[in-house]
Nucleic acid binder design. Structure first.
Lengths: 151, 151
DNA sequence: GCAGAAAACTTGAGAGTTCAAGTAATGCGA
DNA sequence: TCGCATTACTTGAACTCTCAAGTTTTCTGC
């Protein structure tokens, strides 16, 4: 027995396509801005940002994967690329010999400091300049509903 | 003179990170579902879907790029891959000899018919089952605000 | 205290995207 | 109507991401 398909209503379809349009628009703009400014994909920027907020600007690889909501494999490749630029330093973990840590270097921190204003400005221009305070609250509410674990 | 950076407020930062979390969650789930069911990335599914809605299930390449909100280059590569699967057929445009059209084949349409229910179910489960009617309206409103051309 | 399972990474291959450059046809201004 | 900019598309290379497989520790149950 297969359930009959529960197609989207007109409102749902409009919202879904709006979601996709927003997604493409914001992602491509953010990516392009970081690419132009630093040749850096957004995911790599997020790694730098998360490291910058961590104690000693250092995180375990697995923890870095968690906070950036991505796979260990991706982190492994990305950290290698960032290490090649001299922005991140990898080291074996002292507490678990399977593990490795990634640390933001001074040069990586300097790059982030230089990049952050343009990035924030882009986020603001693309999103927050366009939303009312009520819409910002609503957005947070919606993203929470979609992201929270199943009931 | 460089403007002082207008950093995000706590609410804005929370909304932005919520947005990123939603994005990752939804994108990876949708992509994985289509990948498992048909070895198809979401962008390719969108091409099939847009073609299926077009007259004669046919669109110019440039028009296909517009409606899927992506680059001509990507469309060109993607259509080639879909043509290799026999799901899309390319042909020179009759009205403009620079142009080409892409048409959904019967086999491509059949694939879409088979795929659509699972895809819709995933969209529903990930998004609309989790949002109230008011939230759905708010989402559409937010995406419109972010996507609409500058004032 | 010893397998066997699980965890933490890494690696390499395959696939998709982007970017820059190239080709061919069309539009337009003088 | 000639020349030049523009449009429409393709292509190849570089890069990122995903997926599966492999290595090395650590954990767990007996």
């Amino acid at each position: 027995m297969t359930e009959p398909t529960n197609w989207l209503t007109a409102e749902e379809q409009a919202a879904w396509r709006g979601y996709l349009a927003m997604l493409r628009h914001v992602s491509t703009s953010i990516d392009r801005q970081l690419q132009d400014d630093a040749g850096l994909p957004h995911g790599y920027y997020q790694i730098l940002a998360m490291l910058s907020e961590a104690p000693d600007r250092t995180l375990r690889m697995s923890r870095l994967a968690e906070v950036t909501m991505t796979s260990q494999s991706r982190i492994s490749h990305a950290v290698k690329a960032l290490e090649d630029r001299g922005w991140v330093q990898r080291a074996p973990s002292t507490e678990d010999r399977r593990g490795h840590t990634a640390s933001l270097t001074d040069s990586g921190f300097a790059a982030l400091v230089e990049l952050a204003p343009g990035h924030v400005a882009a986020v603001r221009r693309l999103i927050f300049d366009r939303l009312s305070p009520e819409q910002i609250v609503a957005l947070k509410d919606i993203t929470d509903s979609i992201t929270k674990p199943n009931a």
